[in-house]
Design a binder for these strands. Structure first.
Length: 804
DNA sequence: GAATTCATCCTT
DNA sequence: AGGATGAATTCA
């Protein structure tokens, strides 16, 4: 009988997006399992693959089938649930199955491919130019040849059979090991050794005596030295005598910087208890119910999560908690660690590859029961999930922007169904989609209308910046804000200032000819960064030195427009000379741990004003913050996106929520040029429902979600005409295939019409029901794929896109 | 006629 | 995707 493994290979392309059959060598048949990774030959190279099925027969002719080269896992890395989920993702989001599989694993488990040139002859027979490279070794990486510009020589050597090329598959991640000492168990033997040792070797005698009372134990050598006042020399002699041996032990890298204190349950308010009871009921009844926990800022959603998790853990199940990347601050993770201690794993982009791998292994090996993490933590390999929680449910970071373009919310609900467990979506400002579903009783709505400590909501004041201008105030701070800031400074209270833009200025303009500095590769104006006198593109990383004269007209009247965090920082120094300002944006938090350090410093009162972008809007919870200033509420409002109003409302509500969370009452000052806009008006009262009603009306009028579903088809090419032309062709074909229930808009140039030197055109599909949509889109790819690849056209499909 | 570029085909 | 194979094109 034969054993055949069906393998999804690590090659992202449509023609190979299906399982391939491989023979399982006899010695592997007992250990190979579904969900294991394998190394397999594929065409002329070796690749990594995932075993998705095992069979005893195959349709592949004997002369074609090849054996599995190597089994990489003794324990499978993916469960059956995950393999199912991958197929579901492939259908749901239109992606390659391999992408869906890879996204579920830490990058450490993905393959690293290397091409190695192996020497096949004596060095002396090589042409002189190559001899140098092979002087000390038989194997040289191909990229060494590339670096030295010797690809032609390599080709020649290959032809002469002097060398061969081998494709090797390496693992990225390494299990970190430490060397420990294992003392033998046999006390008798230790006594014998003790007798062998000469009486002059006092230290050795001492150490053996000590070992007798610790027989069988595995210990850190350092501990042994300390305990017995001995040294490596002494220990080594004893190891030679057979009293102990060195063993390697797997350890986890510890991403937690410091110890946390254990905390206990907080008392719940009436509303919190009601919510908790409802969720507990669903857990007990194994109902895969979705709850929308709508609680105002400071209403204690986290405490509800914590107590739900406690319940789940006591049932012997596991919990997954998702938080937006940005709010995955130590403050948030500490709350979970302080409640559940060592049972918590943390997963976010701030961890190194190795750390992520270790956290993943803790989950995989069942060492932890709770995972707190960003989007991808929704794939935590638990096998008995009791609850899945998405905090700040409305956040756009839950949608992955590249393939597989999944939404963590959908995956969570899908996994909830599999595990027969509820899902909690929590937010002070739910997405319209979720709230609408709650209204239709698809989700169960749970309300927390009061703050947990009964604090009043902060007072929000809206300042019309046009009036300020009329009064002759041309600075970026309104008189009102200046006064409020000064007041807090005097009272030694803290201030948070929020600005939606990093860098110094938003664009650089020549006053004579009106030229705006543009990125060479993208259709984006460059942002001026004062620190190194450079203009940067925030999309592709292109940067140039600030020109002294205009590149168009050589005039030297160059001016910087718009306001970035750096500029505000300078202005603050002018207005409030004594104030200590902390600036927090992508530029100041680039290095590992700097995010934490900055917040820590602010929390410790080492600064008066925290000035930041997006990243400070969430999770910030310090008692001394009594004033929040929003410098310009308009920035997000005027984005060409149908969710602009929703985003603005959410942002203002979230930012406002940072103030007055404890005893001292909070105040919020919002500066804007459009105070009459409903998103700004309604955020003043911080009342969600009126905004919901109003925005739903707008969406209905314009035909956007939640009334319609969207699909975005994007076509890019180096040449504008090609991009536009083929986007048109795609739209035309879709129009001919899809029913009248789908309206197809476009093609139009994308919001950023050129990115990384490629022009982008897109068309938007709007529909309510269209069961054949996905099959039709797949058909589109199938028909045009080869033609497009030839012409360099790139097409991407985003179902349920975040931005359009 | 060899060298180089291009197109097409295939991967178990 | 990435590599091999074979045809088309270039060049001396």
């Amino acid at each position: 009988m034969i054993t055949v493994a069906q393998v999804i290979v690590d090659v992202a392309a449509y023609p190979v997006d299906r399982p391939f059959d491989y023979l399982v060598p006899a010695e592997m048949t007992q250990i190979i399992e579904i969900g294991s990774r394998v190394k397999v030959p594929f065409g002329p190279r070796n690749v990594l693959g995932f075993v998705v099925a095992i069979a005893n027969e195959t349709d592949v002719p004997v002369e074609k089938i090849k054996p599995v080269t190597q089994l990489l896992d003794i324990e499978p890395v993916l469960t059956h649930e995950m393999l199912e989920l991958a197929k579901w993702l492939k259908n749901e989001t239109i992606c390659y199955e391999i992408d869906a599989l890879q996204v579920m694993l830490p990058s450490a488990l993905r393959a690293k491919y290397e091409k190695i040139v192996n020497l096949q002859t004596e060095v002396e027979r090589l042409p002189e130019s190559l001899q140098e490279l092979f002087k000390t070794t038989q194997h040289v990486n191909v990229n060494v040849f590339e670096k030295n510009n010797m690809l032609n020589e390599l080709k020649q050597a290959l032809k002469n059979k002097h060398v061969t090329i081998e494709n090797i598959v390496k693992q990225k991640g390494k299990v970190k090991e430490v060397r420990k000492v294992q003392i033998i168990e046999n006390v008798q033997k230790l006594t014998e050794i003790h007798q062998q040792i000469s009486n002059r070797a006092k230290k050795q005698k001492q150490l053996v005596e000590w070992m007798q009372s610790h027989s069988g134990e595995i210990m850190d050598p350092e501990v042994i030295y300390k305990e017995t006042n001995s040294s490596p020399q002494v220990l080594n002699t004893l190891i030679e005598l057979g009293a102990a041996s060195f063993v390697k032990q797997e350890i986890y890298r510890d991403p937690f910087a410091k110890e946390v204190q254990k905390t206990d349950f907080l008392n719940l308010t009436e509303e919190q208890s009601v919510a908790l009871n409802q969720i507990t009921r669903a857990i007990d009844q194994k109902q895969p119910e979705t709850f929308l926990l709508h609680g105002v800022t400071g209403s204690g959603k986290t405490e509800v999560y914590l107590q739900t998790i406690a319940k789940v853990l006591s049932d012997g199940k596991e919990a997954i908690v998702l938080v937006p990347e940005i709010s995955l601050t130590p403050q948030m993770t500490e709350r979970f660690r302080s409640r559940f201690g060592e049972l918590v794993a943390v997963m976010h982009s701030g961890l190194s590859v190795g750390e992520k791998y270790d956290e993943w292994r803790k989950i995989h090996q069942g060492k932890v029961k709770v995972v707190v993490g960003a989007r991808s933590a929704v794939f935590a390999p638990f096998e008995n999930v009791g609850i899945i929680i998405l905090d700040e449910e409305h956040e756009s970071t839950y949608k992955q922007e590249d393939s597989p373009r999944y939404h963590a919310r959908d995956v969570a609900i899908r996994r909830g169904k599999h595990h027969q467990c509820p899902v909690i979506l929590g937010s002070a400002t739910p997405s319209l989609e979720s709230f609408a579903r709650a209204k239709k009783n698809v989700y169960t709505l749970l309300n927390l209308k009061e703050r947990a400590l009964k604090q009043s909501m902060p007072k929000v004041e809206i300042v019309d910046m046009r009036e300020e201008l009329k009064k002759g105030n041309r600075s970026m701070f309104s008189l009102n804000l200046v006064e409020s800031i000064q007041q807090r400074l005097d009272r030694k209270e803290q201030i948070v200032l929020f600005l939606n833009r990093r860098g110094y200025s938003s664009f650089v303009l020549c006053r004579d000819c009106g030229t705006v500095l543009q990125c060479e590769n993208c259709d984006i104006s460059l942002t001026y960064h004062r620190k190194n006198e450079k203009c940067k593109c925030h999309y592709c990383g292109y940067e140039i030195h600030v020109p002294k004269t205009c590149p168009q007209c050589q005039s030297d009247h160059i001016r910087f427009f718009g306001t970035g965090t750096q500029k505000v920082e300078e202005e603050l120094a002018k207005f409030f000379p004594g104030a200590r300002v902390l600036r927090m944006d992508v530029d100041t938090t680039r290095t590992k741990g700097s995010h934490e350090q900055l917040l820590q410093a602010f929390g410790d009162g080492k600064a008066d004003i925290l000035l930041g972008t997006q990243m400070i809007a969430k999770g910030l919870d310090y008692p001394n913050i009594t004033l929040v200033g929003v410098l310009s509420a308009d920035t997000s409002l005027h984005l060409p996106d149908f969710r602009a109003a929703e985003k603005t409302f959410q942002l203002l509500t979230q930012v406002s929520g940072r103030a007055g969370r404890h005893e001292k009452p909070g105040e919020v000052v919002v500066q804007t040029y459009t105070p009459e806009h409903y998103a700004i008006q309604l955020s003043q009262a911080q009342d969600y429902e009126p905004f919901y009603e109003r925005e739903m009306y707008m969406r209905h009028q314009a035909g956007y979600p939640p009334y319609y579903y969207l699909a975005l088809i994007q076509v890019s090419h180096e040449d504008v005409l090609m991009a536009a032309d083929y986007a048109g062709k795609a739209a035309e074909w879709l129009r001919s295939q899809l029913s009248y229930n789908v309206s197809i808009i476009g093609p139009t140039a994308a919001g950023i019409s050129r990115l990384q030197n490629r022009y982008r055109y897109q068309c938007l599909l709007k529909y309510k029901v269209e069961p054949d949509l996905i099959p039709t889109l797949l058909q589109l790819i199938k028909i045009y794929r080869s033609d497009w690849i030839k012409k360099g056209i790139n097409l991407s499909i985003d179902l349920d896109p975040n931005m359009i």
